[in-house]
Design a binder for these strands. Sequence first.
DNA 1: ACGCGGAATTCTGTCGACAAATAAAATACA
DNA 2: TGTATTTTATTTGTCGACAGAATTCCGCGT
Lengths: 236, 236
Amino acid sequence: MTRSDTDANFTPERKRGSGVKMVYDTLRDEILDLVLPPGSPVDEVQLAERFKLSRTPIREALVRLAGEGLIDTLPNRSTMVSNIDFLNLHTYFDALVLMYRVTARLAAEHHRTEDLEVIRARQAEFKAAVEAQDALAMIATNAAFHSAIAEAGRNSYFTGLFNRLLDEGRRILRLYYQSYEDRLPQRFVDEHEEMIAAIAARDLETADRLARTHAEQIVDQIRTLFARKGRLNISL
Amino acid sequence: MTRSDTDANFTPERKRGSGVKMVYDTLRDEILDLVLPPGSPVDEVQLAERFKLSRTPIREALVRLAGEGLIDTLPNRSTMVSNIDFLNLHTYFDALVLMYRVTARLAAEHHRTEDLEVIRARQAEFKAAVEAQDALAMIATNAAFHSAIAEAGRNSYFTGLFNRLLDEGRRILRLYYQSYEDRLPQRFVDEHEEMIAAIAARDLETADRLARTHAEQIVDQIRTLFARKGRLNISL
DNA sequence: ACGCGGAATTCTGTCGACAAATAAAATACA
DNA sequence: TGTATTTTATTTGTCGACAGAATTCCGCGT
């Protein structure tokens, strides 16, 4: 389905305001899923004829993507998919660990019963993705799981910041989960279960600690993955 | 100068890509400084003839502002300056306190000597603004001071998040500092000095604690201010 | 052969205009 | 007089086109 959406969307007539959202969502997914690798040139007229639209809505979508830092646009010059800053990865990981902790802690403090149902549903989806060994689905469901925890924390600023952070790191996580394509990290599923239990028990400290170890473990594995890869090919 | 910029900018010829940035910066400042109060309608053609531009660059600026949540745009309908969410103010304050703490702690850990010079310079500007009893300057210099601390933390994600948060709260702080127009909170200047000392001494815990009390104190005062105001006029 | 300068091309930024969609106004009807 | 329906009007979303900027290519000169 995703495949047929991207290349051959032959919808002769679209609803009035849906063009930009369509282009925005499509390009966003393609960038975050590394279909458009970092550094790829983004040509407006090319996109215009691809989506059968004028350049105006294309530009609007590009402006929004630029606002999220997904594309870099040189004034009066070419615009390209933004590069992943591998040098400052640790800053991203620090931020991610902190947000994992804060959201888990707040969820333990402020969640309601209906929140737990949503979280458990997301966890079930994540578990299914892990068992199916579907890397892309693991990324999405894992993000949705932690996003649901953030929602349960009932702080729109943190959820916004956290979702933003998860999106920004989606390309990194994409590389990370790719390396797991064969073996399945069942451990993550178990750790998620523990976090749910701590949140349900309103145990702030345990939720915080679990989120911290969970996050730091992932960060360590990503680090070793990149260290391994870095010796082979520095490029990208 | 600000006044003459807003209404009568009769520059006959602008450089090619500077139009959107001009409109964006101007509108952004007007929104954050409450010149355009929340709920104000934003008319494209009105702005177009005000800035002597076509609707296209105006729209681009509006898209970027919408991306930052400063304006809300109803599809196919009017677009207006976004309202301040007074009901969920505590979520903003929680996020602000956390970022104050994190940035101060990181600054104490990672700062270099040249960072301290910048921080002290910002503090001097803040002190001057307080002594001059200039509310707008106090907002700007206070934000610049804490932003400089965040920069010294050497984590681009946190600085980005923090600056974003400071911007989002600029309208709230605008209301807050307005209430101080007469008496001057010399205490804040002293607390800033203490924070600088803790950061310079690389005392993480003290920097964290000072940032926390500093932030929470401001939050409390804003709370009481709004509680006082809330009894008088609920509107706005 | 190599560097410099100008022409051509390509892409972006801006413009004016048209069409769809919604809100407001006016009219018809009970 | 109040309500429903049509008409008008305002505003947004989209389009095609033009002009400015910058890269590229090509020819010229040393």
